[in-house]
């Protein structure tokens, strides 16, 4: 059971990264549907850097930078040229999928030495929870660190307040003299970096390989998680664990001989996501309390 729970935790980490990043972008009023593409770029760059240099920590860095660079493409069009965010985001996913396949072609079939586990002294020796919570790789701790930091930033800092103001009413923020596009640019870049980190986690920890499209829809799940979390960071953790749990449960169910078709079980994580979204949407007040009012709306500042 403990081993299964450990697997669930690891499966959740990429989602925590990507969803936290997207949450910040959306809180600033930008809907970036390119998460899947940015994750793939992060994954391939992390793999390539680690394969070439041999240091997985450099792979982490490469994944973050690649994710942020991919987000730049989005910013250039959606913020710079004020193109439709939905269309630009979708294009970014397709672009990232293709480009990562091209960049990754020479690395298919290769393998790398992934990130080592870093046991936290003393805490890791605690019975049961020690191994579950305090004996992970660097990136697993980092994901929780980012989640807490984002929660604190949005609620407790002036910059966080400005970011939320930009997301809720870009015209008012603009009138007050805040640089709307700059704030959004930073938020989108942060989102890209986090998606890149989430993608990097796949080859660096989950399986030491690169294969085309290896994120297999995790970017879309991350997008759904932001809505699931109703734009509140701490709820992302709950959603990610739920999704990770169902992903692993469908495999464990097969191993235990549940008489349900495996294709049906494979659908479970996605069905669960849809059900949760429907349930949340029924209570509009709850669902929209923290929803950024300007989400997805174009902004062109007066000169």
């Amino acid at each position: 059971m403990e081993a299964l729970m450990l697997t669930v935790l690891l499966t959740s980490v990429p989602l925590i990264f990507a969803a936290t990043g997207e949450l910040v972008a959306e809180r600033s009023g930008v809907l970036n549907l390119g998460v899947e593409g940015m994750m793939l770029m992060g994954a391939v760059s992390a793999f390539a850097a680690t394969a070439i240099v041999g240091n997985p920590y450099l792979g982490v860095l490469a994944g973050a930078v690649a994710g942020a660079m991919t987000a730049l493409v989005f910013s250039l069009f959606a913020l710079g040229l004020a193109t439709n965010q939905v269309a630009t985001g979708l294009a970014l996913t397709i672009f990232g999928t293709g480009l990562s396949g091209l960049v990754g072609a020479p690395f298919v079939g290769g393998t790398i030495e992934g990130l080592p586990n870093l046991a936290i002294p003393l805490l890791a020796d605690l019975p049961v929870i020690g191994n579950l919570l305090f004996n992970h790789d660097f990136m697993a701790y980092l994901s929780i660190g980012f989640l807490l930091a984002v929660g604190w930033f949005l609620r407790r800092t002036r910059a966080g307040l400005v970011l939320r103001a930009v997301g809720n009413s870009h015209d008012s923020a603009h009138a007050l003299g805040y640089p709307v596009l700059l704030v959004r640019f930073c938020a989108v870049s942060f989102g890209g970096m986090m998606a890149g980190l989430g993608g990097a986690y796949l080859p660096l920890v989950l399986t030491p390989h690169w294969s085309e499209g290896m994120t297999a829809g995790r970017g879309w799940i991350a997008l759904a998680l932001v809505v699931f979390a109703s734009w509140i960071p701490s709820r992302i953790l709950v959603g990610a664990l739920l999704f990770g749990g169902i992903t692993i449960m469908q495999l464990a169910g097969q191993a235990r001989g549940w008489v349900v078709p495996s294709q049906m079980l494979s659908m479970l994580p996605y069905i669960a996501t849809i059900i949760v979204l429907v349930v949340i949407a029924r209570n509009r007040e709850f669902a929209l309390a923290n929803s950024p009012a300007c989400l997805g709306r174009l902004f062109i500042g007066s000169k």
Binding site: L202, T207, H209, S211, A216, T247, L251, Q254, S262
Partner: peptide, 21 residues
């Protein structure tokens, strides 16, 4: 465990982890 793919390193690794668990 059926992973419904010929080549999906992430899912294959997940399935292996579950078997071992």
């Amino acid at each position: 465990i059926w992973v419904n793919s010929w080549y999906d390193p992430v899912k294959e690794a997940d399935a292996a982890k579950v078997h071992i668990a």
